[in-house]
Design a binder for these strands. Structure first.
Lengths: 189, 189
DNA sequence: CGGTCAAACGGATAGCTGATCCGTTTAATC
DNA sequence: GATTAAACGGATCAGCTATCCGTTTGACCG
């Protein structure tokens, strides 16, 4: 998908590292390269060779979810109701962050280590802008809102739901907070 | 204010450490006790004796701002317009987090190391609840919103404004995002 | 099928950071 | 000014990150 290792064993190790990292992320354990190496029974240097910094590994882990989200965004552009398309995308973006803990940090960071991540996130931003533009053109959204605002608000909703809260209640909380933000964004008409 | 050192030199060192930490926080430098000790020209062990963990120092640094905010909240309770009192408090809470970088982490954390911080934050929560109750009783706020929701939303607004943004634009962004959230919270009547 | 070589591997270890121990100093009290 | 408990501070230990380099392995070719 992303790695371009020439040799068979290198490809296998690469995948094994990513799989192990995936487990770390799902368990809420911070991605420390030495720990991942030990958990994968792979030499530390091998891990560092494939992923010089933890962010590179994190971004690799996050890529599938980001790709899925980008596809969702493109699909949403075919939805007839501009407001519904916009609102659904926000929900999808928030759910992606809840479902996959690797998404949130990548989403909230401006500079990425992997060029592929940069490109993927740029695509997401463009799609967000398109969805926002359509909704704005339909005069459903308060003027002056930028696509950066939309991204930030998505992150804000997820963060808000993580304050003083058990992970179990996050889905419920994000739904409520997204509703509040959407109400605030929508023009009364 | 908070420390209860018996000896004169101990009190002087305590204050000097807090003042140095204040400078770290204002400069956006993470509070590492070894670094604070060196910057203050004070032995490492002395710093660790006064503040066993970095959070203790951070909470001490944050206390004045939190106290001010708590006073603001109490003052807001005398405001005649329940909605205005509520909205002004949210603005004050957000501004406090922007003005003083030590406030945000303390605000967003559920368990504190210093009992005084726990008490102070509890007071803040109570006041928030009171302001919310008044506004709710006046039927200006959508039903089902709890004081925890309000706290979380304040943190969310601040966080949102920090995503992909230069610190300079944070005040403007938070104002916009707070407006959006307030619109979403307010009942259309 | 065996030799050659570049690519990949992995453990030892150097460098750095956080935190503690304990011998020394200092302020308070009489 | 002697005594003593409290506070001080630097040396140092433990744990973590990241790199170096000798060894192994897979790919390619004769």
């Amino acid at each position: 998908m992303t790695g371009n290792p020439q040799r068979k064993d290198a490809a296998r190790n690469w995948q094994h590292i990513v799989d192990t990292a995936r487990r770390f992320v799902d368990d809420g354990v911070p991605l420390r390269l030495n720990d991942v190496a030990r958990a994968a029974s792979i030499g530390v240097a091998t891990v560092y060779r494939h992923f010089p910094v933890p962010e590179a590994l994190l971004e690799t882990v996050a890529q599938p979810a980001l790709t899925r989200l980008a596809a969702d965004a493109d699909a949403a552009l075919t939805e007839t109701d501009p407001w519904k398309a916009f609102a659904d995308f926000l929900k999808a973006g928030i759910d992606a962050q809840l479902t996959d803990a690797s998404v949130q940090p990548v989403f909230a960071t401006s500079s990425h280590t992997l060029p592929e991540t940069t490109e993927l996130v740029a695509r997401l931003h463009t799609s967000t802008g398109d969805l926002l533009a359509r909704a704005s053109a339909a005069e459903t959204i308060r003027p002056g809102v930028t696509r950066e605002d939309v991204i930030r608000l998505m992150c804000g909703v997820v963060f808000a739901a993580s304050v003083h809260a058990h992970p179990d209640e996050r889905p419920t909380l994000t739904r409520t907070y997204l509703e509040i933000v959407l109400t605030g964004l929508r023009l009364p008409t």
